[in-house]
Design a protein around this nucleic acid. Sequence first.
RNA 1: GGAGGAUUAGCUCAGUUGGUUGGAGCACCUGCCUUACAAGCAGGGGGCCAUAGGUUCGAGUCCUAUAUCCUCCACCA
Length: 826
Amino acid sequence: MEKKYDHRLVEYGKYDYWLKNDLFKSGDLNKKPFSIVIPPPNVTGKLHLGHAWDTSLQDIIARYKRLKGYDVLWLPGMDHAGVATQAKIDARLKEQGINPKSIGRDKWMEYAWSYKEEYANIIRKQWSNLGLSLDYSKERFTLDEGSSNAVNKVFIDLYNKGYIYRGTKPINWDPIAKTALSNIEVIYKKTKGNMYYFKYMFPNSDQYIEVATTRPETMASDKAVVVNPKDDRYKNIVGKSVISPLRKELIPVITDEYIDISFGTGAMKCSAHAIDDFDILKKNNIEIVESIDTNGILNDYALEFSGLTREEARIKIVEKLNKEGLITKIEDYNHEVGYSERTDAVIEIMIMPQWFVKMDGLSKALLDVQSDKEKKVKFVTSRFEKILINWMISIQDWCISRQVWWGHRIPAWYKDDQVKVQIESPGLEWTQDEDVLDTWFSSALWPFSTLGFPNKTNDLERYFPIDIMVTGYDIIFFWVARMMFQSIEFMNNIPFKEVLIHGLVRDKNGKKMSKSLGNGIDPMDVIEKYGADSLRYFITTNTAQGMDLRYDEEKIKSTWNFINKIWNASRYVEMNLNNESELSVIDKWILFKFNNKVKSITKNMDKYDFQNVGSELYEFIWNDFCDWYIELSKVHLNSKVLKYILFSILKMLHPFMPFVTEDIYMNFENKSIMLEEYPKYDKELNYKNEYKLIEDLKEYIIKVRNIKLEYSITKDALIEYTCKDEFVLKILNKLLKLDDYFKYNDENMNKISIISDNKDITINYYINENVIDDTKEIEELKLSIERRKKLLSNEGYVNKAPKNIVEEERLKLEEELIKLNNLEAK
RNA sequence: GGAGGAUUAGCUCAGUUGGUUGGAGCACCUGCCUUACAAGCAGGGGGCCAUAGGUUCGAGUCCUAUAUCCUCCACCA
């Protein structure tokens, strides 16, 4: 082995080796199945650190389960990401001087598919760099034939069941992407603006009602002024008419409970471009006319402001109405404005025919399942379930049609005012709906569409429901919820038994990583610099479940050091291969300790508690294995145990650091570590006494080292000790590096410390310079004894605390009394 | 407005169903190039666990307030 760990050398070629040997392939029917389906990344771009985290967690589970003897299916795939991808493709076409709309749908689709292939290749390369053990023979795409069949089947069924309908309602419109969006694709951001107060004049009068608005550009659509029926200020004007400031039309003053008396002037104007306005106008049977078009430009209804953008129109309208003396005041006002998640355009509320999924029945079914402890999806961590439930309870219908090309075309056909929902064209005179479905509509079917739905396939039979879904909390609403209700509806079952929810990656200062802040980190750069193993171990073990992760390069460096440590420990083992000998106390100590680690690590692996696994492995490897066992092995070497511990460590690390563990293992065994078994707890290895002896010895050695350093005792000063057990003596000589200064049976020995209840290995020592001051230690010990005595004489404690805990306290007290005795005897 | 978090060493974070003397990494101090590793070894210092009450024999952990910060949801014009 090389003297230093070189991640590039180690990681080079491994992934191809695994692929060539089909080590990621599923389908061994002799084993129990375990299934994971990757959350499909968008084909719009490269993977970021969040993906690296998400997929590393899955890979850890997949590799762990394989070592545990499962037939693991980890199914890869990607998402067509409708609106997002279309925006990118259009942008690229424009760069090439091509107008995307003018080339026609079919030609455009050709471009789109080649774009998709390009990014799919980048993503696959990134997966390979991360070392993800995906079964590529099962790879899927949300827009492939099978997925399209699933989408059509679900759409048509839901339509026939009355869950999908076409309706003309106010929807969120993205004027840049020129498509409808669902509610959750709208991001509300606090935005600086103004509150404008306008006079709505009564005809032939100088009386007016003052109305506040943040959006003067919608005023051409004003069709009513609403006040609260309980508002005394306006009682006698309800039912009268006022003049709309812009179009100078007579519009009624009406009432609605919705109006907050204390807000603004207590009077609100109703236009077409707000959902509440729409509802109120509709309720009152008042005409609704839009004055903004799908490009976000004012239309002819806005008279001389036609052709202006919303922003321009706002300024001009305020200018004009101000000249007319219709503005009473303008205040600074910060409020929530909706932006498109994809294009960051300010959302416009438009009234148009769109397709919707009616949510009440589907959400109720989901809530019913989650209230059943036997049937429910288990959330790790559980608090995210509450978030989902709260959202499901107040959910509104889901707008699923999108006015783009990149997606599943809606299987609806029109002829005059007739609608037919089916896959095949009903005839020549019929035309198909131009729209496609929300990308999340197909993602929602992912756990079963990837396994063959709507066909009844062996894969569905064997691998569904998925054993675990791993995803970030940011897409619980977008994805987790929708997978759940679609699966409950169509598979009559939950889509996955468990869902492991992780947080977001933040930068060193705790800020969310984003393109606009420019604080994003490319995982491929990290891999180049420190290796995939370092990155993976860092992202998966540095945070508690469900918490956000702060990216810190220093921590990746220290992971690299950890791997280098493992590397060097392996080199030591390699250099000491052929030293077969009897099991010594040391060997029994490490075997006992390791055996217990296996037990607790396995338990934590099964709980997906990787932070704990990480620190347990770290601690065991660095402190127990390297600092003590390897050092002790220099006194007495048993290469069989040395190898056993090393190999076991490698197997337990393998899910986290697949490359370096494979590399080291191959170096010894010439066989892939992936084909091995995870270490098992062995109740035969019950070397309690040997364990206790070495632990005591460690304590003693640390104490002497401390004394040496504290009193600057070098070899010139003397520490002398005797011990009837020659083996223990050898250990002391080696670890305390005082070979030349030990004596046997010195009668003048005046300082004694018993380090074990085994009389045969009692150690006597003294330091001939009389500089050691034990008074502090004695005092502390006395205090501790006091505390313990008091505790044990507390009746409440003795009676109510668990017996084993009280017993432990008694034992500790006894030990302390013995210690005190020894110290004072000097 | 509603909901979910967070607050523990200088920094970043752990802390299991409450068990009595609260951990790790980094940073810091001291001494070491000891034949696996100086990207290392050995040793050490450093905490009123945000605040105030409560429950309990016992609270970092459970309950109730308060403060500060973060995130999500929601149609206040």
